[in-house]
Amino acid sequence: MDSRESTTSRTDDAGVEIPYQRFRPKRYQPRMSIFWWIHKKVYLRFIIRELTSVFVAIYAVILIVKLNALLRGPESWEVMTAALATPFSIVLHVIILLFVVYHSITWFLLAPTATVVRLGRKRIPDSAIIAVNFLMWLVLSVAVGWIILAV
C-alpha cells in the first residue's frame, strides 16, 4: 500500500477525519463582489471617470435636441430657450460641465499611453503630448467662445 495514503489523517472543523485526496483537491475560485470598485481608491477614480461619459452623452443629446429645435423654426426655438433658462436646466448644465471637464482632463492625462510619436530618432515625451492636448482644448474653447460672443 502506498504509505502516503495511510499516514495522512487530518480532521475537519467538527473533528471528523478526512481522507487525504491524492489526486486533485478542489481549487478555490474567488468570486468578485459587485462592489469591487469601492475598496480601492484607484478603482473608485476609474469608475467615476467612466461615469462621466454618461454626462457627456446627456449633453450630446441636449445638443441634438437644440439643433432640432433650430431646424423647426422660431417657435420651437423659443420653447427650447425658455426650457433651458429654468433653474433645473441651469443646475443640470453646471453639473454636466463639471463632469465633462473632469472627463476631458482625465483622458488628456491618459493620452500618452496610446500615442507614441517620434521626431526623428527621439520619442516625444509624455508631458509634451499632454501639453499639446490641453493647448488644443484651450485654443478650440477660445475659438468657440469667440464665435458665440461675436454673434
Binding site: 487530518r10 472543523d13 483537491p25 481549487r27 478555490y28
Partner: peptide, 10 residues
C-alpha cells in the same frame, strides 16, 4: 490559507 482537505473556504 486554503487547505482543501480541511476547509472549503480560505
Amino acid at each position: 490559507r486554503y487547505l482543501p482537505e480541511e476547509k472549503s473556504e480560505p
